[in-house]
Amino acid sequence: MSGNYKSVFDIIGPIMIGPSSSHTAGAVAIGRAANRIFGGIPEDITIHYYESFAQTHKGHGTDYAIISGILGFEPDDKRVPDALDIAHEQGIKIKFIEEAGDSPIDHPNTAVCELRKGDREIIVSGCSIGGGTIEIRDIKMDGFHIKPKGPLPILLVQSENGGNSENLSDKLQKINTINHHAQYDAPGKGIMYEYDLENRLKQKDLSQLASKDTKMVYL
């Protein structure tokens, strides 16, 4: 059993703009994850599609969906179908590439998103596993190469001085179940802690976990 679907509302829901939960709502969700990892809206976006995404992105509205997410829209936002125009008006450069090969993260609905602004670039590889539910299986950001198991929620905590891992794990264990934990080093950037969690975190829990010397990304 995969256990990817954790809530009844993953099955009955989401409320969304059609036409496809995997290729539209799921694409919005992948875009939103990229937006959170980037920490805002980029100047330049390249999307690499694989397999079913490469073959059917046009028909399913995947292009505007993924850009909606990168712009920070929710799946049921009325602006979703107009996201490409909205991005162009903001001067964002966008490129879609249909890749002929197999998905690098081994799923037929794969999008690899490159987001750039100035010197900074992040690469997020996500897949849409059905019904709007997604996995994030590969993240390259700020010198770190993070390889989560896939299922959300995922909490990333970057600590420049390397401290407080035990403290954070303790706090998390009290309010949640940690399914997987990993840490990554990047020269001069400190340590990135990855927590794959069983349950969604509430906003108040997130603010309690935050501290001055860490940066958090919650997916």
Binding site: I12, G13, I15, G18, P19, S20, S21, S22, G132
Partner: peptide, 21 residues
Amino acid sequence: EVNAAMGVVCATPTAGSTGTL
């Protein structure tokens, strides 16, 4: 038909199969 016209639906469990339930 609402889904295909990019209207608002509740995916049950997916948008492609949204009319069955």
